[in-house]
Each structure stands twice: as structure tokens, then as C-alpha cells.
Simulated assay, not measured.
Amino acid sequence: MFDLPGSWVWDFWFADDGDRYHLFFLYASRALQDPDARHYRASIGHAVSTDLVEWTQVADALVRSDAPAFDDLATWTGSTLRHPDGTWFMFYTGSSLAPNGKNVQRIGYATSPDLTVWTKARGPVLEARGPWYETLESEAWQDEAFRDPWVFPDPDGDGWHMLVTARAPEGPIDGRGVIGHAWSPDLRTWELRPPLSAPSHHGFGQLEVTQVEVVDGRPVLIFSCLADQAMPSRAATRGGTWAVPAGNVLGPFDIDAAYPVTDDSFYVGRLLRRRDDGRWMLFAFHHTGTDGGFVGGVSDPMPVGWDGDRLAILDAAASDGVPMSGRSQDESPGDGMRELPTPFSA
């Protein structure tokens, strides 16, 4: 597990340079006392590991910019990947406040030759706008949700795609969460495109920290959402990280088919394929403790595989990699834990 004694650690993502794994994470000082206040004080930290278990903290990657800027309130969740020319790109969420005091989220990026020293590009490259995406003008949600960029190469070699946590301008308020989509020929200029999912009466208010991967030959989308940010039909499930079966890494994604991979004691699940043996691992941050309070800290790797048509956490001690008993949508080590009433996960 990776955690910091003086700070809350929550959302995170990885990069693999071939020798070391790099963990980028959001953190904020515990001196704030109220864990909900961490979102508006978030910086992007950095740690390295050779085994995905023992981590060494190194110099921070990014902090917020001086005002006025699209990221002058906080720097939030993103993804990191390498351009064919060797340049590392970190796409991240910039948070700022609108005149009415509501939070506005936009997507920017920074580049690095070595994953250590980062230089921000000037201004955001993407933001929410109609007709496909809800903006503050609708007044339907607590913020302008457009964050958590997940960037990956087109499977046919046609540029790059970005998945974004976004909301549709129509539909049930707690079911408007959609998979936002953008495309780029070069990672520097971006074209906003229609979402890859639709709002739903059995959906979610926000599909946070999306990721799409091909796990053991099967495409799968994962995202996170808590019960108080979803349609009532999802409340009893108490899911934290969810999965959606997919026929293609570019969807379209049927969010009605989402099922929980973890309960709400874990949040922001991330998939990573281990370099040494090719096995897929799930990481998440510890969300809710036995007292109902926020915990924080990135988990150790949890092996995952397919249990029929569902992605599931496997029993790491089992030689045949069978699904963990007691980790269904109704029974888990988190039983008896209460949800944290957090408005969003940065």
C-alpha cells in the first residue's frame, strides 16, 4: 500500500518506463482536518517502484498555476503515456471557479523527457460544450463535470483517443453521466466528439476515472461512482468501481450493463498489466473505513480475471486464479461500512 502520514492520498494513475513503475497521485495535507476539503488543495505527487508494492516518493509532478488559469484552484486526475518520439505526456484535469463559485473542469497537459520534470502546455485543450455535453448553464449539477482524461492510441493507428468524465445535457439528473470522447492526430491538438455512451434511467450521475483495456483478450471499461451519485436502482449494490463489457475499446458502451468489481470501501479502480508475468492487476484507493470516515492510500495490487462474463478480483493465494469468495456485489470485506457523502472525486 502507498500512503503518506501527513497527507490524504486518493485518485492515481500509472506509467511504466520499462525499468520502473511510476505512480502519480492526488494528495493534500491532513492539516485541512476535513477530508472533503482536500479536493480544492490537490497537487499531483509522484512515486516509483520496481515491484508495485514498495514505493519511493520522489519530487512532485504538478501543482496548480497562479491565477488566472484554468488550473488555478487545483490539479486533478489524469493519465500518462509516451509519444513515439519519446516525449512523455501527462493529461490532467485543471480545476477553477466560475464567478458563481461553482467548479469548472477542463483538460490540459504537460510534457516531460524523463517523467520527472514536467512543463505545462499553455491553456486547456478541451472543455465541456454543447450540444453533446452539459455545462454550468444547465444548473442541474454541482459543477461542470469534464475531467479524468484517459488517453490511448487508436487500435488501427489513427491518432489518439481520450475518454472523459462528462455529463449529457438531457436525461435523468442522476443518470446523465456519459463517457466523453475526443480525438487527436498528435496528442497536442484535440477534436471534441460525441460521447461513447448515453444517459440512462439505470445509470450514474458521473462515470469517474474511466479506463478501457483489453484484459485477457476481452475489452472492458471500468469507472467509479458511489450510490448517492447514481440512479436509485443502483443504491442497494453499494458499488465503488464498476465494469462494463465492451465489444471494442471505442464502445459504444452500454452503461445499463455495468456491474460492481469492488464495493464502496475501494474507489477509483485502475487496471495495470504486470511486466514480469503479464498478469492483470487492479489497484484502488481505500475509501471508507469501519467508522464511516475517509481513509485514503493506494492499495496493493489485486489480481483480476474473468469469472464467466464478469471481471472479478481473484484469490491471490489460489494457484488456479479463482474468483475471491465473498467479493460479490452483496458480500465483501466492506460490509457494515457507510458511504462518505463526498460531492465528487477529483
Score class of each variant (00 low, 15 high):
Ser95Pro: 00
Pro124Ser: 07
Arg82Phe: 11
Asp114Leu: 06
Gly86Gln: 08
Trp132Arg: 02
Pro124Trp: 04
Gly94Leu: 11
Phe91Ser: 04
Leu115Ser: 06
Glu127Gly: 13
Gly130Lys: 01
Arg129Ala: 09
Ala128Leu: 12
Ile107Met: 02
Lys102Trp: 07
Val125Glu: 04
Phe89Leu: 01
Thr116His: 05
Asp114Ile: 07
Ile107His: 01
Asp114Glu: 08
Gly94Glu: 11
Asp114Gln: 06
Phe89Met: 00
Ser96Ala: 14
Asn100Gln: 05
Glu139Asp: 15
Ser138Tyr: 06
Gln142Lys: 12
Leu81Phe: 11
Tyr133Trp: 02
Val104Lys: 10
Pro131His: 11
Thr116Pro: 00
Pro131Trp: 13
Leu126Arg: 03
Trp88Ser: 09
Pro124Ala: 07
Ala98Gly: 05
Ile107Thr: 03
Ala121Gly: 15
Trp118Thr: 04
Pro99Trp: 05
Gln142Ser: 15
Ser138Leu: 10
Leu115Asn: 06
Leu126Val: 01
Ile107Cys: 00
Pro84Tyr: 13
Ser95Gln: 14
Gly101Cys: 10
Trp132Leu: 03
Thr80Trp: 10
Glu134Thr: 06
Leu81Asn: 08
Gly123Glu: 00
Lys102Thr: 09
Leu126Trp: 00
Gln105Cys: 03
Pro99Met: 04
Trp88Arg: 09
Met90Ile: 12
Trp88Val: 13
Asp85Tyr: 09
Glu137Asp: 15
Tyr133Ile: 01
Tyr133Ala: 01
Asp114Pro: 06
